[in-house]
Amino acid sequence: MASEYTTTEYIQHHLTNATMCTTESGIAFNKACKDAGFWVWNIDTLAWSIGLGILFLWLFTSAAKKATTGVPTKWQAFIELVIDFVNTNVKDTFHGKNSLIAPLALTIFVWVFLMNLMDLVPVDILPTIAGLVGSTFFGMDPHDVYMKAVPTTDLNLTFALALGVFVLIVYYSIKIKGISGFMKELTLQPFNHWAFIPVNFILESVTLIARPVSLALRLFGNLYASELIFILIATLGLWQLPLHFPWAVFHILVLPLQAFIFMMLTIVYLSLAHEDH
């Protein structure tokens, strides 16, 4: 597939999301959505993220239904290992009392890991399949069919995840401390004097907003750079194999690490929100 494009076109094609929008003439896709404004859907990101979320639910639900008290199967033992790993980190990091935190941490860890894992799929396979489907069933030019299969390389998704965490931070901060306590936290720290209220508010507001922003950008930046390197390696054609496999093996460690960092920072931020000074 790389030979059909120049190197620049090949990279741009692989880094472009499949989009859908509504226009005056009806539903439009991809290039027709260029000037559609804000309301544009990245349908590949939505499809893969929702699909992998359903896969996570199905895998863990089926394991729970088949669980036995006797000698566990290898799959049950693996699921229990993942749950124990997450639960241990929650107990060690989260100091409040909230039954939501452990399930939330498990969902974040496994879901983000599955989305990251798509980075190991060879970069030409899914776009080529999408191009064949588009040309065969919809009469589209394969060059106009896009498929970006790693959801976490889309800044929209990572910001959406981080925004969900931010809403929980604000919600539990107000629930545990009350509105007055939350406002005091924003206005009387780090300098506990009324004269420094404007300074404190600016500093604490920046700190509060920086949490979801850092969550989103950290995950996006690492996965986007990783995917870009895979694409650059793919431009080498048959010569990519000596470089592709070492980079893929390295990512067997990187991909779960990024999911773990996102999970741990979420737990830490929610633990801070539960602290009642």
Rank of each mutant, 00 (worst) to 15 (best):
V249Q: 07
N30G: 01
S271Q: 06
W111F: 06
P122D: 01
A2S: 07
A225R: 08
F137C: 07
G139I: 00
D44S: 01
V150F: 00
D35W: 03
M115R: 06
M263D: 03
V150K: 05
F159E: 07
G53R: 00
L106A: 11
F196C: 06
V86L: 06
V121M: 02
V121K: 02
V249L: 15
T45C: 03
A234D: 11
L265C: 15
F138T: 06
M115L: 14
M118S: 06
L241M: 11
L126Q: 05
D124Q: 09
Y172P: 11
F196K: 03
N87R: 15
M263G: 05
V145W: 04
A2T: 01
V254P: 10
P246Q: 03
A77R: 09
I125G: 04
D276H: 11
Q12V: 13
Y10P: 06
Q76R: 12
L114C: 02
Q76E: 12
F38T: 13
T7G: 06
K148C: 05
M118F: 04
M140N: 11
I261D: 07
A273G: 10
L217P: 09
A32T: 07
M1G: 10
I50P: 04
N116C: 08
I43P: 04
M263V: 01
L46G: 03
P72W: 02
I27V: 11
F159P: 12
L100W: 15
S99R: 14
F201S: 14
F60Q: 13
N42F: 09
L81T: 15
L270F: 03
A36C: 00
L203P: 04
S226W: 13
V121D: 05
I209C: 05
V71G: 07
H193A: 08
N116W: 02
F137S: 06
V145P: 08
L46S: 11
W58Y: 14
V199C: 10
T153R: 10
L114P: 01
W194R: 14
F109C: 05
G53Y: 08
G53D: 01
D124V: 03
I43W: 09
H274L: 05
A210M: 15
L217K: 09
K34A: 15
